[in-house]
Structure formats: structure tokens, C-alpha cells
Simulated assay, not measured.
Amino acid sequence: MPAARIPIHAIKGRGAATHLAHRFSRDERNAFDDGWGTLEEGAAEAEELPPLATEVRFEDVRSVLNENDSPDISFDRSLNPYRGCEHGCIYCFARPTHSYLNLSPGLDFETRLIAKRNIVEVLRAELGRRSYRPSHIAIGTATDCYQPIERELRLTRSVIELLQETRHPFALVTKSSAVERDLDLIAPMAAEHLAAVYITVTTLDGELARKLEPRAAAPHRRLRTIRTLAEAGVPVGVSVAPQIPFVNEDMEQVLEAAWAAGARSAFYTVIRLPWEVAPLFRQWLELHYPQRADRIMARIHEMRGGKDYDADFATRMKGSGLWADLIRQRFEKAANRIGFNRERIALDLGAFRPPGAAGQGRLF
């Protein structure tokens, strides 16, 4: 008897389709066809359920600056105000981090969020250490620092306020137009070579973006954000990551649109499928692109030495093999033709001044 095919259904406004069990789970539960039509009934009920609500938890952290010595990453330190991300990007390499919280990298990652409520106090203490030496801080490298809950919690803004006070350089990456809210802080810092912003534009196809990144800003809105930042004098770059074979195939058009909006630097990566991201991405393919799912996975395996993912520093960002080389050539030729990356965004490390105690002013 052939195995019953378990149906997967899209959940409005969410990237993942299931509460996929994480790799530390003792038990895993799956739907089972008992021959009485229960799967069909359950699918019908699922379509009638209201959208999943977002829950926010708060945590007090002991450190916020993450040191980086990976040779394939350009920044030395990073910080992320939030764990989990409501944008729900199905390809997000940070999804497996929810496993350490005993939460699902699937729907939990985008609906059960953790906010680091004491992030500014801890960052102030870390920047104030006698041993601290300034280095480029990248904000939002794992989860988006301007995801929807930032509108109310303002943790990212509070971090930038501290970096402005201490004249500490930073760069941030986001898919959100909410970064425009903080232009009153970012633009003056950019004028002193202390800030840069990168906007991720994965595709110009709005329908595809709604499937890939269901709660992120629409592509045309991100381009408008690039223009707003550039007109305010902020050095702005565009990330066309990740590149997914046979899914987002308009890299050149994205680069042209971003240049026209004011971006002057650009970078890309290819899709990464570590740990639980691989089965989640397969579910997504089965749901949205079943006819080409095998072909897409075959090309991903071709870039990863026959595996879902290879964490080797030499290849994890760009992949290896013929298909990875074709993507690299496309990016380099388009970027060179358009004019990207001709001038390096240089941030000033020499302006840093250590912070005083929280709430303590300065005499000079």
C-alpha cells in the first residue's frame, strides 16, 4: 500500500507551515491517515482557523556583543535585540537557534519572540570596560532588528541612541521600512562616518516575496526606503541574499532598481539550509512549488557537495561547483556593469568615547 501523503497548508501571514519538532525534542508527532477522512477534516478546520497570534517574552541577558572570528564574515562584532523574527522568512538560517529555547524552528520562530529588555544596560557596561576597544558592530545579522515588535519596544532605537552617545560606529541590515523612523539618529551619525545601512531585497516579485518573507516590507517599499536613506546622506547598500536557484531569478533587475534608488554597495549569499531549515524549506517547496521542488533541491545539493548544507567557512556563504560559479559570475558582472562596490564604506573607529554610568552626564 502506498504511503499516505500528509497535506500541508499555508498559514496566512506565516512562512512556515508547521510546528516542526526541533532536533533536541524527545518526541515528534505527525498527522496520520486512519482511513476515516480525518486528515481532510483537519485540513478544512485549519483553513478556517484565525491567523496565529504573535507572543512576546522578555529576557534579561548577561552579554549582548557577539564576537566573530569567522574568516568569511566582514564584521568583528554583532548584536541582535530579538530572538526569533516575525518576518517569517522561510530560508532564515537563524531558525535553528529557537531549538536551544525548546521551541520549534518552524512556527514558534516567527510567533514566539524573545525581546532582550536589558540590552542597553548590558551594552553600556560592555562598552565601558577598560579593556574594550571599538570595532565595527553589525546590528540585526541573525534576526531583523526592525521587525514589527520594534515599533512598540524600541530596543533597536535605544541601542542606536547609546551608540550615538558614545560615537561608536555601526552598520545594520534590515528588510523593514521602519528604519526610516530612526533617521534622526542615523543620518547625523552617517554624516560623521559612524553609520551605514543595508537593505535586503530578495526579489522584485511581490507575489514571491509574500511567500518567501510574508511579514517583511514589500519589495517596492524597500526600494523607497533605500531612496529615503540615500537622500538623507546615509551610506546604503543592498543585499540580494539569499539566491535560490529557480526561485528568485531577478538578481540583475534587483541590483538595477537598488542602484536607481541610491544604493552604492551590494552583496549576496546563496541559500543556506542548516539543521531544521532544510525540512522546513522542503515543506515550503511542497506547498508552493511542488512541480519544481526536486529540481530546486538538486541545484542546492550541487552547490553544497551533495548535501543540504556544508558549514565550511570557505564555501558556506557562496557555495561551490558549477551552479554557485554561475551565480557568482552573474552578480559580479551585473555589479561591475552598474557600478556597485567601487568605493568602500569606511566607518570611523577613532571617534569612540566610553560611556558614563547609566543616567550619568558628562562635564565635557
Rank of each mutant, 00 (worst) to 15 (best):
Y82K: 06
E276Q: 13
A190F: 07
P235M: 09
A195V: 02
P148Y: 08
D34F: 15
D312G: 02
R353F: 02
I226V: 15
A125P: 00
R181M: 00
K318F: 14
Y309D: 00
A31P: 07
P279D: 11
P279S: 11
Y309K: 08
Y309S: 01
I6E: 04
E48Q: 15
S104H: 03
A357V: 00
H220G: 07
A346V: 15
A314R: 15
I8K: 15
Y268R: 02
R29C: 04
L212C: 10
A335G: 11
F281W: 00
D27I: 04
A94W: 05
N118W: 04
V56I: 14
P274F: 13
L204H: 03
E48K: 15
A17T: 13
F93K: 04
P51Q: 10
W284A: 07
I300F: 01
R295Q: 13
G305F: 12
S25D: 15
A263E: 01
E67C: 06
W275C: 10
V179N: 00
H193V: 07
A10V: 14
E249G: 04
E67P: 15
L326Y: 12
P105D: 03
G359W: 12
A125I: 03
G106D: 10
I114V: 15
P169H: 05
S25Q: 15
V179G: 03
Q253F: 10
P134I: 05
A324E: 09
P214F: 09
A195M: 09
V197L: 13
A196Y: 02
G356P: 07
R210Y: 07
F340E: 03
D182S: 08
L347I: 09
D33W: 09
A171N: 12
L123N: 05
K175S: 03
D144H: 07
